[in-house]
Design a protein around this nucleic acid. Structure first.
Lengths: 110, 110
DNA sequence: CCAAAAGTTTCTATATAATTCAACTTTTTT
DNA sequence: AAAAAAGTTGAATTATATAGAAACTTTTGG
């Protein structure tokens, strides 16, 4: 099994921001792109919230939920509904976009 | 209120495929990008399923659910979990990706 | 036009996501 | 090093997404 604790995940995200995305201020810096995997979703929320300089409590107020709920969304993220994702990122003034990519070759009808 | 029935939504999608995305066979044709909005999610599933020439029943078999469930995902899409989205598109051999975009200017801390 | 196939709907059950509250732990500030 | 602020956790509750079955409607092909 690969190293998989929370610290490690956060590190990876932070490294990404600095190394892959570019310096703060550049337009590139303000667009993050991740694969949609539930394991990182929580980190995405946390990362954007931090960028916005908000506490969990403040973000909670924007949405109308308790800070404990935000905490759970940021950590326990096993499965979440789209509505929740949208609600959170809307409050963070972040656009969420969703792409579906299909390559002909990959599909063989049985 | 804008015209908002199902027929219209499907039309829009189909038009998109032909006009905006390009001819079948080109690599561009096989990548769709949407804002993450729940209203279109069902249409996305339907659209990709059709592309794969599958019936709801066949798609259901791939995933392990009844055709009625697929129907619901395609129409009633009010809210869905990420897991479900991934499950469906994985069965359709489509890559799903998810990006978060934030522009500095849009956010004013109150 | 009829039959078969495909898709939809309703009813119902079950699992689990969303949420709160309060106590607790960790981090930050002074 | 205390106090305050921020974040986490667990238990309990509520809301709702997932799902199947069966009856129904619409579409398609002969």
């Amino acid at each position: 099994m690969a190293t998989k604790n929370k610290k490690m995940k956060m590190m990876t995200l932070d490294q990404m921001k600095d190394k892959d995305i570019g310096k703060v201020g550049t337009p590139e810096r303000d667009k993050y792109e991740f694969d949609l995997r539930m394991e990182v979703l929580g980190d995405m929320i946390k990362s954007v919230r931090k960028e916005r300089k908000l506490t969990q409590e403040q973000l909670g107020e924007l949405i109308g939920v308790q800070k404990s709920q935000i905490s759970k969304l940021e950590r326990n993220t096993k499965n979440v509904t789209i509505e929740t994702i949208l609600k959170v990122f809307r409050a963070l003034k972040a656009n969420v976009r969703f792409s579906v990519e299909m390559n002909e070759s990959e599909f063989k009808v049985a």
